[in-house]
């Protein structure tokens, strides 16, 4: 079996292209190039290019699997859901619209939705169990490819989460990493429903500003 980690993730001919903008460091440039690469690959996938899908897999599979596993906790279920997600990316690639966001974000949105769907389905059948969210810093290090870009991105997210108020941070992480509804979050935190909704929103806005997310391009 081929090694899906570092060695295969970035084919030689797709090494980061030097950016015309001044770059504070190489990690940032690599992260940006990774995103641009995913955009291009997903557009090729939409045209039925299976080879491009293989390269896209190498670029995003660890992100998809990691996210799904974080939400579901169970590696076997996570593998199953990650497979569904990645096949859905192939099947629905024609829906991706680069004017509305990045490929990475589009894929993560699908992955998160499917993971949460699975949590809810479980909750509907079994008795509800309280999940405890952990900070995003806890991914075991041996599972993280030792790569400057990855580490930088993680540090940036961690730092920006650290800039939120405690309630904002808890509301967002309990929802995103543990798959709780805002009602469950309110219950867990002993906070009022409108407060939790508001903190989720203003917390995300603060994160957006901290991360410098470009978001939707208004000009088409």
């Amino acid at each position: 079996m081929t090694d899906p980690s570092g060695a295969r993730r970035r084919p030689d001919h797709l090494t980061p292209v030097p950016s015309p903008r001044p770059e504070p460091n190489a990690g940032r440039a690599e992260a940006d190039a990774g995103r641009a690469e995913a955009d291009g690959l997903l557009r090729a996938v939409a045209l039925g290019d299976e080879a491009a899908f293989g390269r896209l897999y190498d670029l995003v599979a660890a992100r998809v699997y990691g996210l799904v596993r974080r939400v579901l906790r169970d590696p076997a279920q996570a593998e199953e859901v990650a497979q569904e997600v990645l096949v859905e990316v192939w099947r629905t690639a024609t829906r991706f619209d680069p004017a509305r966001g990045s490929a990475t974000s589009w894929i993560c949105t699908i992955a998160h939705r499917r993971a949460v769907d699975r949590v809810r389905a479980e909750q509907a059948s079994a008795e509800r169990q309280v999940r405890v969210a952990t900070s995003p810093a806890e991914t075991p290090h041996d599972e993280v490819p030792d790569q400057a870009a990855r580490r930088l991105e993680q540090q940036q997210v961690r730092r920006c989460l650290g800039d939120l108020t405690e309630l904002q941070r808890e509301a967002i992480t309990l929802a995103y990493y543990a798959g709780h509804t805002y009602r469950e979050v309110a219950e867990l935190l002993g906070a009022a429903l409108p407060t939790v909704k508001t903190r989720m929103r203003d917390g995300l806005i603060r994160l957006r500003d901290c991360l410098g997310v470009l978001g939707v391009e208004v000009t088409r």
Binding site: G66, A82, T104, S105, H112
Partner: peptide
């Protein structure tokens, strides 16, 4: 929603985890 979905997706940066190699063959 567009901007905040992009933001929320960055939260996945912290959850990176390499899947078992068989997943690639199965997905493809």
């Amino acid at each position: 929603v567009g901007e905040l979905l992009e933001t929320a997706a960055r939260l996945a940066d912290g959850a990176w985890s390499v899947p078992p190699p068989r997943l690639r063959a199965e997905v493809l």
